[in-house]
């Protein structure tokens, strides 16, 4: 007999205490359900339910066996879920540094177009690097410079940034900009944050920053004329003299064969092509 199928009958009747309702919940009619319960009782050699005019009552033996039946059904469900992971070999868990802002959806769309199924995570670079080390991510685009011990880092890429500031300010005007720069929180990546502040001071700015995690709120600060910000994209004005670029690199987990059926190298190359 199909034991799992009959155990499902047992559990459904035990929950509903009514053959008709149990049959509805199982999406079948009552006679085959009743016959199924009788077959299971014969198979196990014990009576599971007492049926009389007042309804259905579970027997002492039925109560004792019910938890085991339930756990067998749970185990079976877990087995299926686990097998399901192996039937979806092309899902790649990718972490994106939050500094990439609007570039993230563009990169994900590009990968999808190239045939990859992507499960994206957007966070600070330091927590993302920890996820790569722990095997919770297959790939991550992190802001450089970052501690890459325990990962396989690829080449550093330099991305142009755009200054979003009130009209009249260009990239060479850092000394004239007396507004703070609104940036992601320092805890996302202390080393890169400190490097940016050093670069701002080098260029003549005070180095004053506002830390704000939400990119929409960062944009709002700029719209309100209370801050300037750097966002990834082509530099406006094209002078580039005092441009502070965003540097990123793709990192992979070690060992390389953590998920041998996923071609992480090819995905990394496709990702870099979009940066």
């Amino acid at each position: 007999m199909d034991l799992l199928r009959h155990l499902r009958f047992f559990v459904a009747v035990a929950e509903a205490r009514h053959f008709g309702q149990a049959a509805v919940s199982l999406g079948m009619s009552q006679p085959p359900l009743s016959q199924g319960i009788q077959r299971l009782e014969r198979e196990l050699g014990v009576r599971l339910f007492d049926r009389d005019a007042r309804g259905v009552r579970i027997t002492a033996a039925g109560s004792a066996l019910l938890p085991r039946a339930e756990s067998m059904l749970e185990e079976a469900a877990e087995l299926r879920a686990h097998a399901g992971r192996w039937t979806e070999p092309d899902e790649i868990r990718i972490g994106f540094a939050a500094d990439l802002e609007s570039q993230v959806p563009a990169l994900v769309a590009r990968l999808r177009h190239a045939g990859f199924t992507v499960a994206p995570t957007v966070d600070g670079s330091v927590p993302l690097a920890d996820c790569v080390r722990d095997g919770q991510l297959d790939l991550a685009v992190l802001r450089h410079p970052i501690v890459v011990d325990g990962t396989r880092p690829r080449e550093v890429r330099t991305l142009a940034t755009r200054l979003e500031a009130p009209r009249g300010y260009g990239f060479d005007d850092w000394a004239r900009i007396d507004l703070p720069v609104v940036v992601p929180p320092r805890r996302h990546h202390p080393a890169a944050h400190d490097q940016l502040v050093d670069s701002l001071r080098r260029a003549g700015h005070s180095g004053a920053v506002i830390e704000e995690a939400d990119p929409v709120a960062r944009a709002a600060y700029v719209a309100a004329g209370r801050a300037v910000r750097l966002s990834v994209g082509d530099a406006v004005g094209g002078s580039g003299a005092s441009v502070i670029p965003l540097r990123v690199r793709v990192v992979l987990p070690v060992p390389a064969d953590r998920r041998p059926h996923v071609d992480l190298e090819r995905c990394a190359v496709a990702l870099e092509a979009g940066l």
């Binding site: 450089h144 410079p145 970052i146 501690v147 890459v148 080393a191 400190d194 490097q195 050093d198």
Partner: peptide, 11 residues
């Protein structure tokens, strides 16, 4: 061993 490469890193 620092992530940053600069020669002067007072921090």
């Amino acid at each position: 061993r620092s992530a940053r490469a600069e020669r002067h890193l007072p921090r």
